[in-house]
Nucleic acid binder design. Sequence first.
DNA 1: CTGAAAGCGCTAACAA
DNA 2: TTGTTAGCGCTTTCAG
Lengths: 334, 334
Amino acid sequence: MVTLKQLAQELNVSVSTVSKALNNSDEIGAETIERVKELAQLYNYKPNQLALNLKRSATKTIGVIIPNILNHFFAQVLFGIEKEASKKGYNIITCLSNESNEKEIKSLEVLSHGSVDGFIVSVAEETQTNDSKEHFENLVKQNIPIVMFDRVLNDVGCMQVIINDYESSYTTTKHLLNEGRKKIALLSNISELSVGKLRIKGYLDALSESKHYTNDPIVASYDLDDDNEEKIESLLMQNMDIDGVIAIDNTSGVIALHKALKSGKQVPKNISIIGFSGNNILPFSEPKLSTVSQHPLKIGSTTVNMLIDSLEKRESKKRKVLIKTELILRGTTL
Amino acid sequence: MVTLKQLAQELNVSVSTVSKALNNSDEIGAETIERVKELAQLYNYKPNQLALNLKRSATKTIGVIIPNILNHFFAQVLFGIEKEASKKGYNIITCLSNESNEKEIKSLEVLSHGSVDGFIVSVAEETQTNDSKEHFENLVKQNIPIVMFDRVLNDVGCMQVIINDYESSYTTTKHLLNEGRKKIALLSNISELSVGKLRIKGYLDALSESKHYTNDPIVASYDLDDDNEEKIESLLMQNMDIDGVIAIDNTSGVIALHKALKSGKQVPKNISIIGFSGNNILPFSEPKLSTVSQHPLKIGSTTVNMLIDSLEKRESKKRKVLIKTELILRGTTL
DNA sequence: CTGAAAGCGCTAACAA
DNA sequence: TTGTTAGCGCTTTCAG
């Protein structure tokens, strides 16, 4: 890589002249600028990013820490983040915590000494269940801005981008009730997470507020590593009168659909099913699953814009942004 | 962030003493080392990464450029890359080309002036169809190591990690022939890609080598943005005698399965279906899709290890590594 | 055993 | 208009 120094030598001028010339400083004569730029072009000079970073103690790089890239929701958010960051001239360093609190802590630690200007994080399941927040608080103390999305820690002083979890499952449940469903089950492999709890609450409240609904709520929780398929199948088999399903995670909805069909039910005639998820799974079911869309791309771009605003001290007022979900009815609802 | 200088002042020693002490130099007295380390601990001193990077002209960071993170194959490879890189103490900067040659060129350009030590790339579709390689050749000239995986450019002087595309579809087709299938169709939304072409060739060769197979080959190609579902459905509907399907991309297999079932066929009795893909779609079909597994995690970790070997001048001999696929029979084959 | 000084590549205040 | 100098934070000769 050619440096300013080398250009300067070849041109018999000083390094600072070259630097200024390349930055179009009006301290430098038009003719000199021309000469310098010509040679720079010839040698395809590009400033060394490392030197620039050190100089201005900033990297134009964002650290992104995500629990699980194989979860399509996070893949979509990452997609949104990368797109917006790239548009704004920022790079992203991606770390995957794989739901491990330890890995998350380590990633933050490693990146926090100059490698990135700020962080976008969705916390690991472990982090949330242990309410582990010291590692974030340390960063906040150092004035390193953080935007959390989806899975957030409420009492850390950082920005947040969340969806209306409670309301969306409340509304969704209402929709099933309005269809006249008499026995509505909730499926979840995220019950330990804050978002899961909120969604469950929305479901419970909607049911208990209903005058006509007589059955008990059914909250079927299982771990990510459980055999969800089997659990869902046996739930549906043992409760053939379930006629409504709200699946609050990414995959349970499609699975429930398949199991319902397998058991000989007609969808949506005998049973309505609504999932939370992106459109990635749509080609994989017949009829198409009705879903609550979380607008993951918008979540991604919003986190980036909040972070950059904060970095560039256009001090965003909004510390907490709520992205509204949207219930999209397709083939598995009336 | 506390610096060496600050520690030095507080201890009334020189900066270089502090530096050496923290690096356990044997030039420094045991007692001094102790004092220095104590204070460093107290202030939670960590060397500024930017300064280190500049000093040693290296970042311990890998640039990863991927065409499409929403494609689960790439998500899995990325997962493998991140895991291995993190284990080896490297970070990854992720760029998504979104199949755009221009974006790919820009990303390489931006990162190539100090931000990363080397690249892992799967080229954009555009790049491959245009055989655009100048941007890679520039890097090779500058001795920046590159590992390409899956979608590679053959005459760029860089390392490669690929799968046995030809052989795997050849074998898969053979399997269908051995089942006694009489009319085998190939489904593809990646026909423009090198890997797609190889897989198609494997299929064609297997068919033409068969003495008993009498039908013409059926290669059904469609674009990523086409309505693949509809195309697949009409193909199967209009050729009800198709009794074997090899789907060489990520999603067509599951779709074909759904459409076959929808048309009233029994799988695998009336029709066998084999896809190329990860296990992410398994929960979404009944019976489970038989697939060619590409070992994406292994692809990811292999690219990282080759790159790091090359960076740390343990000069890996292997410039080209082939990861063998594996045909995993599940419910959609006999 | 410790410190002074140079240098990584760049920018910018200040001198000339 | 151009050059000198200092400095970002660190490592590393080389002198003391």
